[in-house]
Amino acid sequence: MGALRDKFWELPLGDLTRAEWEALCDGCGKCCLHKIEDENTGTIEGTNVACKLLDTDTAQCIDYRNRRTYVPDCMRLTLKIVKDVTWLPASCAYRLRADGKPLKDWHYLISGDRESVKQAGVSVAGRVISEVDAGPLDHHLVEWDADETDWDGDSE
């Protein structure tokens, strides 16, 4: 990864280098959870079912560089589409910065601690199941609260 500028996360997203863009991710893992879209309404519901490449204990992709080889529909979040991805959580660093808002205090770039996303209750680490073991997605629906720090699920 290339050199990161001091406080690069305060810059507009369009000014970030590729390395800075990648470093902006808070590592919560929520974008790696399966979603269910209602065919009639277009409403998207979240689940607690993780992509097979997400380590459910750490919320980190086990093969990020090659993920599209194993999961062809894995979305690459880009500047061009970040505002159109409606299912990104409100706490997502990309969404916050796209809206001109500052990062949350628990973001590792602010706190200096990669574990702070877990300590704040925002990470999916230890709270999700792999798609390999999950069974039907509709048995694993969850609803994130407004602060994104906890979610209520009716998973079975």
Results as ranks from 00 to 15, higher is better:
residue 46 G to P: 02
residue 87 W to H: 13
residue 36 I to Q: 10
residue 50 A to N: 04
residue 40 N to R: 14
residue 65 R to Y: 02
residue 88 L to K: 07
residue 43 T to Y: 08
residue 69 T to A: 03
residue 86 T to W: 02
residue 63 D to A: 10
residue 52 K to I: 15
residue 60 Q to D: 08
residue 86 T to G: 14
residue 45 E to Y: 01
residue 58 T to P: 01
residue 74 C to L: 13
residue 72 P to N: 08
residue 65 R to G: 03
residue 78 T to D: 03
residue 54 L to V: 03
residue 77 L to V: 15
residue 68 R to N: 04
residue 46 G to K: 05
residue 51 C to R: 01
residue 42 G to C: 06
residue 75 M to F: 05
residue 53 L to C: 04
residue 83 K to S: 13
residue 79 L to D: 06
residue 28 C to K: 01
residue 34 H to K: 15
residue 33 L to N: 09
residue 79 L to T: 14
residue 34 H to T: 07
residue 46 G to N: 12
residue 90 A to W: 06
residue 34 H to I: 12
residue 83 K to I: 01
residue 77 L to Y: 01
residue 91 S to Y: 09
residue 85 V to I: 15
residue 29 G to T: 10
residue 55 D to E: 05
residue 80 K to E: 15
residue 71 V to T: 03
residue 35 K to V: 06
residue 37 E to I: 08
residue 91 S to L: 04
residue 67 R to T: 14
residue 51 C to E: 04
residue 84 D to L: 04
residue 28 C to T: 07
residue 42 G to S: 04
residue 56 T to V: 14
residue 50 A to C: 09
residue 39 E to N: 03
residue 73 D to F: 00
residue 58 T to Q: 04
residue 28 C to D: 09
residue 87 W to M: 07
residue 74 C to W: 10
residue 27 G to D: 05
residue 91 S to V: 12
residue 61 C to K: 05
residue 48 N to F: 02
